[in-house]
Design a protein around this nucleic acid. Structure first.
Ligand SMILES: [Mn+2]
Ligand SMILES: [Mn+2]
Length: 549
DNA sequence: TGTCCGGCAG
DNA sequence: TTCACACCGTCGT
DNA sequence: GACGGTGTGTCTCTGCCGGACATC
């Protein structure tokens, strides 16, 4: 705990300074001149100026009206701003476009200032802006836009620099400054994992810049919806870091999907072919098919069949190859028919108040055989509890700050291989019955801590105890090993419900399908896995008693 | 005047 | 800071 | 049946507030 936010009105400043110190202590060799200047300059500012700066950094946007910077612990914003203006960290004459002015001014203020040009006083703000945009193309300060306003505007420079510092600390831009106070307040707790004092999120300057580059490209794409504009920048970005390679591949894939939807098939294909995303190749095949390049599609599909990246691709190939062969006039191949899973048909009264899954729970639930709506949470949760020490093992590079939900390399191919012995030690407990006690103890000891696998609020103690009674260790082991084979792909698709029979020490899983719903690919794969290992799983098809009106 | 939403604080 | 899933429409056989 | 697009509930808190907008 860095400080008690309940009694220190400057808690946010303490946290920010803590991060600056952290970065200064670990990133000395990669800090740029402007970053070093910022860190040393910040320390020399008056407290009120530091505090105002941090408040503004933590808020959204670039421009802030003085009247919106009311902080009792800071006092008069104009006083606090003085030193920041002198350094050029804040601006009070920033040129604004009309759109920015519209965001800052309230509707009545806009009406008062622009009444001469507003033809429809009852219209929406956005309509006014459209109307006036052509009339007022200029960029000028708020004072020039609205001389009568009589209020200062402070504009934050160096937002990008602060994002860079945030990235260095967290190793991502998804977490933010407020994570620290949320942890202090106990709203989020994180497992404590030892790491060396020199541990840091990013190895080198190039990684920092690379992350920011991809992030900026994604932002531009999402803001503009224009994939063409960023595509070349992403294609040209070369990187040797596997983590950044994955981020690049993912962005290329998403750009490709966008272009594919827009009908730009050639471009989409180009992006898919440059992406290492696990789904990229199957999308390539599909695009070739849509372009009626059946021979090329089939060739690529056959290459894929020699070494599918995962089960999902294999599954996709089983569908697309026969289709392509048909289109090419080739002989049909023998089809391997999979046996249909156990089937249960129900006819229930329609009730729009609750989901179909919950209705099946209500229908099947008995005192002797309780049914729980768990989807992925039960098996993932049990896995997370048994393998807790392996998942949170202090491997070099896996943990580097105290606010991590899981290890940084969780989705790397070699996540398991880097921890083989640790995982085997956990899984071995399934052979001799120790796992029950271990899972129970971990549950008690770690309850509430953030985990990539355990959703505590979906795993009440009663369910855990019952599940441990009813699920055979051999099945747990098979599930966990499957999970470890490909965490990303195999952590989803598990059946909706589980019914436990404590007296018989058995169970069955139930995937619910309402009218019009059908099994998804990942659900089919999970069903096939369960069937292959003689695990009890049923697909429950629900019809409504009264016909839909 | 009521509702809804996004931003903000801790 | 989405993601996993359900639901619905279409196409083609 | 295959496929793709869209909607939904949930995520990582909870409560408060200002402001836009709809409706009357
Ligand atoms: Mn489901
Ligand atoms: Mn279902």
């Amino acid at each position: 705990m860095i400080s008690n936010p309940l009694e220190d009105p400057f808690y946010y400043l303490k946290n920010f300074q803590h991060v600056l110190d952290w970065i200064a202590a670990r990133y000395d060799d990669v800090l740029s001149v402007d970053e070093q200047c910022f860190i040393t300059g910040f320390a020399q500012l008056p407290v009120a100026s530091q505090a105002l700066w941090v408040r503004m950094v933590m808020r959204k946007g670039e421009h802030f009206r003085a009247s919106k910077l009311n902080y009792p612990e800071i006092g008069e914003p104009s006083r606090a701003a003085t030193a920041l203006l002198a350094l050029g960290w804040l601006d009070d004459q920033a040129p604004l476009g009309l759109a920015e002015v519209f965001e800052l001014l309230q509707k009545p203020e806009i009406l008062a200032r622009f009444s001469a040009h507003i033809t429809r006083p009852k219209a929406r703000k956005s309509d006014w802006l459209e109307e006036l945009a052509g009339v007022f193309p200029q960029q000028q300060s708020l004072g020039q836009w609205h001389p009568g306003l009589g209020e200062a505007l402070y504009s934050l420079n160096h937002r990008a620099l602060c994002d860079r510092l945030r990235l260095m600390f967290f190793g991502n831009l998804g977490q933010s400054w407020s994570d620290l106070v949320l942890a202090d307040l106990g709203l989020f707790s994180y497992e404590r994992v030892e790491f060396s004092p020199e541990s840091r999120a990013l190895r080198c300057r190039a990684d920092i810049e690379g992350y920011l580059h991809l992030y900026a490209c994604r932002e531009q794409f999402e803001l503009s919806g224009d994939a063409e504009a960023v595509l070349q920048q992403v294609l040209d970005y070369e990187v040797d870091n596997r983590w950044l390679q994955r981020r690049r591949a993912r962005l290329l894939f998403q750009l490709g999907q966008h272009l594919e939807r827009a009908g730009a098939l050639d471009r989409a294909l180009q992006l898919y072919q440059h992406s290492q995303h696990p789904d990229a190749r199957q999308r390539s095949i599909r695009v070739l098919e849509r372009q009626e390049h059946y021979q090329a599609a089939l060739s690529l599909a056959q290459v894929a069949q020699q070494g599918p990246v995962n089960d999902a691709e294999h599954q996709h190939l089983l569908r697309i190859i026969p289709r392509l062969r048909r289109k090419l006039g080739l002989a049909a191949l023998a089809v391997v028919k999979s046996t249909a899973p156990d089937r249960l048909d129900l006819c229930l009264p329609r009730d729009d108040a609750s989901s179909v899954e919950q209705q099946v729970v209500a229908h099947l639930h008995t005192g002797q055989a309780p049914v729980h709506y768990v989807e992925n949470t039960l098996i993932n949760g049990l896995f997370g509890l048994l393998c807790w020490p392996a998942i949170f093992a202090p491997l070099p590079g896996a943990f580097f700050h105290p606010y991590q939900v899981g290890p940084a390399d969780l989705h790397e191919d070699d996540f398991y291989h880097q921890r083989t012995e640790l995982f085997e030690r956990c899984l071995a407990q399934l052979d001799d019955g120790r796992y029950r006690a271990t899972i129970g103890e971990t549950y008690a000891a770690k309850k509430g801590l953030q985990s990539p696998f355990v959703a505590w609020n979906h795993l009440p103690p009663g369910l855990l105890a019952e599940a441990l009674e009813c699920l055979p260790a051999a099945h747990l082991k098979l599930w966990f090993r499957r999970l470890l084979l490909d965490i990303r792909a195999n952590r989803t698709g598990m059946p909706d419900l589980i019914q436990l029979y404590p007296e018989q020490k058995t169970y069955r899983m139930i995937e619910v399908k309402g009218p019009g719903d059908r099994l998804q690919d990942n659900q089919l794969r999970w069903l096939a896995f369960c069937q292959a290992h003689q695990m009890p799983v049923t697909v429950c098809y629900v019809q409504w008693q009264e016909p839909a009106q």
